[in-house]
Design a protein around this nucleic acid. Structure first.
Length: 526
RNA sequence: GGCCCCAUCGUCUAGAGGCCUAGGACAUCGGAUUUUCAGUCCGAGAACAGGGGUUCGACUCCCCUUGGGGUCACCA
């Protein structure tokens, strides 16, 4: 058992965006894992500094995603905790105090230059191919001028006074030693002219006040870290340990997987199937389509009936591995084995195929009963069965047989909808016309064979798969035809499709009466 | 463009100087099983970006080049 450290505190700070991004979820997972691995504390803090929207409803999908995956938090908005409140919008007094402290110590200054002036300076620097640096003219102001400006209510921002004669460095757990030259940094704004605070500042104040020991976040924040470390130092705090993890990219590309590029992602060959499946399934469930629920959102996987274990397994293997052979991890395994030093440095492409393979594994671990329970809500939602919170007891044995017959074809719970023909009324069965043509109309002996079988079927008892297997084989033998000549047309006649579960299971599941009814209907439409 | 990061099979990765004729998984392609599909079993192909060093010896260390990415806001 590796060393653990209960004093470790990590946090994840989502913005209320109205959905949970798959990449963000992976970051959150790593934060959660490090806390849990150590028996430490995992904190959820809401980054709602620019709260235009309805925070509560925009937060709901985020909480939902955490709960679905089984990632709990020890301190957070709904739970409270020793560092409350956990909404940044309610913590402005802390930021204000920190700004005052920095102003008083001279580590920060009030800057009266207008945005236009700054922009002009920036442009001039660009034109001269010079690194832009803050002019710091406001520092030259006399006390009298300062007082006058304040009295006039002239607008100003508070900037950190960057110590230009040195460097800042971190020893990132993942990246190693990274260093920046402060002489190249403009003075960052800490507080806006309207009194609002900036991310790079608020985050540091929060992380320090919440005693976060490990900041685990996506690599895109690496550059921000320079400013943040300077703020830690100016405030007199010890910076936490940083771990900048590689981000998740779109399959076959090395661009960040983002919701903005949805249209590009739609054309990505590896993602195509996921979008198509969404467009096929979600409308049946009354959930919109791939535009409302796309593969970059955690909700996509939940709503399609993926298993938390499947997604979790896939997510943790993106940028992390234990050794040269272990692929399958339960959440408990991951918690036990997860360490920061096994995180990879390079970006990881999200591979839907690999996700499916993990998913298939974990689905296989589930009992038939559990699979029935997982599938049931989809049948209800698609209105294929009568509304009921769970599969009724009298239907359960039959459902169990169906799910057993579907076997590995059931990769996610919504795949049960591919077996919709078992739930449709006999006179409402749609036919794959191409298959019907080829297997029934164009096969000379098919109609007669089907009719004969229909009549013979009435004598079969018990009407179960093994018996039917023997019976059908005897039937074709006695007629001197090959099994394939019967089986293909029979499948189309009974299910309307050319592919599906085992044929004898299909017969048994349908039962004699429905088989006869469907055969009659098929024969009548030749 | 400045600064920063990254670079092993198509993909996810193992590899902390000799264990590497580079291992595993997913995907792909064969073959077997089979009533379709899925699966299962067996097998195959498939990678250290390039160039310099260091070293008896480099996938592993250093430098350069190339390529990719991130970031440069009174966004987060």
């Amino acid at each position: 058992m590796p060393d653990t450290n209960p004093s470790i505190r990590t946090r994840f700070a989502p913005s209320p965006t109205g959905y949970m991004h798959i990449g963000g979820m992976r970051t959150a997972l790593f934060c959660w894992l490090w806390a849990r691995h150590n028996g430490g504390t995992f904190i959820l803090r809401i980054d709602d500094t620019d709260q235009e929207r309805n925070v509560a409803s925009a937060l709901e999908p985020i909480f939902r995603a955490f709960r679905w995956l089984g990632l709990d938090w020890d301190e957070g908005p709904d739970k409270g905790g020793p560092c409350a409140p956990y909404y940044q919008s309610q913590r402005t007094h802390l930021y204000r105090d920190a700004v005052e402290k920095l102003l008083a110590s001279g580590a920060a200054y009030r800057d009266y230059e207008t945005p236009e002036e700054i922009a002009a300076q920036r442009q001039a620097a660009d034109a001269d191919k010079r690194t832009y640096l803050s002019s710091r003219r406001s520092l030259q102001l006399s006390d009298a001028e300062r007082a006058q400006y304040a009295a006039e209510g002239r607008s100003s921002v508070v900037r950190l006074l960057v110590p230009r004669d040195r460097t800042v460095a971190i020893d990132d757990v993942v990246r190693g030693h990274v260093e920046w030259d402060c002489g190249l940094m403009p003075d960052p704004v800490l507080m806006r002219s309207n009194g609002g605070f900036l991310y790079n500042f608020a985050t540091v104040v929060d992380d320090a006040q919440m005693a976060i020991t490990h900041v685990i976040r996506a690599e895109e924040h690496l550059t921000n870290t320079a400013v943040q470390v300077l703020v830690y130092e100016a405030l007199g705090h010890q910076p936490p340990v940083f771990a900048h993890i590689p981000f998740i990219t779109a399959p076959g590309s090395n661009k960040k997987l983002s919701k903005r590029d949805l249209e590009k992602l739609r054309k990505n060959p590896a993602l195509q199937k996921l979008f198509d499946r969404a467009d096929e399934i979600f409308p049946q469930l009354g959930l919109g389509d791939s535009t409302t629920l796309s593969p970059v959102m955690v909700e996509y996987y939940e709503k399609l009936g993926y298993l938390p274990a499947g997604l979790l397994n896939a997510l943790v293997r993106l940028g992390w591995s234990l050794d040269d052979r272990t692929e399958i991890f339960s959440l408990a395994d991951i918690v036990r084995e997860f360490t920061l030093d096994r995180i990879i440095k390079s970006p990881a492409g999200f591979d839907p195929e690999k996700l499916v393979s993990y998913q298939t594994h974990w689905m296989g671990e589930l009992s038939i009963d559990a699979r029935v329970d997982g599938c049931w809500p989809y049948l209800v939602q698609a209105k294929l069965v009568a509304e009921s919170p769970a599969c009724p007891p009298d239907l359960r044995p039959w459902m169990g047989e169906l799910v057993r017959a579907i076997g590995d074809r059931l990769k996610v719970f919504s795949d049960i909808l591919d077996a919709r023909e078992f739930f449709l009324a006999d006179d409402a069965l749609p036919y794959d016309e191409k298959a019907f043509q080829k297997r029934i109309r164009d096969a000379a002996e098919a109609p007669e064979l089907l009719a004969a079988l229909r009549d013979a079927l009435r004598t079969v008892t018990p009407f179960d798969a093994p018996t039917l297997d023997g019976f059908v084989h005897g039937f074709v033998e006695s007629r001197g035809v090959k099994i394939g000549q019967l089986i293909h047309p029979l499948r189309v006649a009974l299910t309307g499709k050319s592919v599906g579960i085992g044929l004898f299971e299909t017969l048994a599941l349908l039962g004699m009466d429905r088989c006869v009814a469907r055969l009659n209907r098929a024969l009548a439409r030749i």
